[in-house]
């Protein structure tokens, strides 16, 4: 099956980014294709390369970059990003900024759009 992920909260404050990540890993392990993780609302904070969490904690921003290496598109909504100061110059590896039209295409194309948030 084809999956898309819509993540509506930033890292750490809510569990949403953790649950979404674990879901993506499990879906890929079951042989599914996860097309994209689309970041909306405060979810756009998942792709700032200015984050540097303590060494003994998970690095949520880096997790998304690593999923990018495995072919998952990491997409941040342009309107939500601009509002919150997420721009190309602070974008983490493998992330890109795009429009809600792309989310619409994803929603149309995938078998399941999974939503994670608060």
């Amino acid at each position: 099956m084809k999956f898309g992920i819509l993540l509506k909260e930033g890292p750490y404050n809510h569990q949403a980014a953790d649950t979404a990540y674990q879901f993506v890993k499990a879906a890929m392990a079951r042989g599914h294709e996860v097309e994209a993780v689309f970041l909306y609302n405060d979810g756009v904070y998942n792709v700032t390369n200015l984050a540097s969490p303590p060494q003994d904690d998970r690095n949520i921003v880096q997790r998304w970059s690593e999923l990018g290496d495995q072919g998952v598109e990491i997409l941040s909504c342009i309107a939500a990003s601009k509002r919150r100061g997420i721009a190309d110059e602070v974008l983490s590896r493998n992330a890109s900024i795009t429009g809600l039209g792309v989310l619409t295409d994803i929603a149309i194309r995938v078998d399941r759009l999974m939503i994670f948030g608060d």
Binding site: N41, L100, G101
Partner: peptide
């Protein structure tokens, strides 16, 4: 919260896609 506001922004974009 901003959720309903940004939600409506999403609705308007999706509405342009003939779904």
């Amino acid at each position: 919260t901003i959720y309903p506001y940004e939600g409506l922004e999403m609705v308007l974009i999706m509405a342009a896609y003939d779904q």
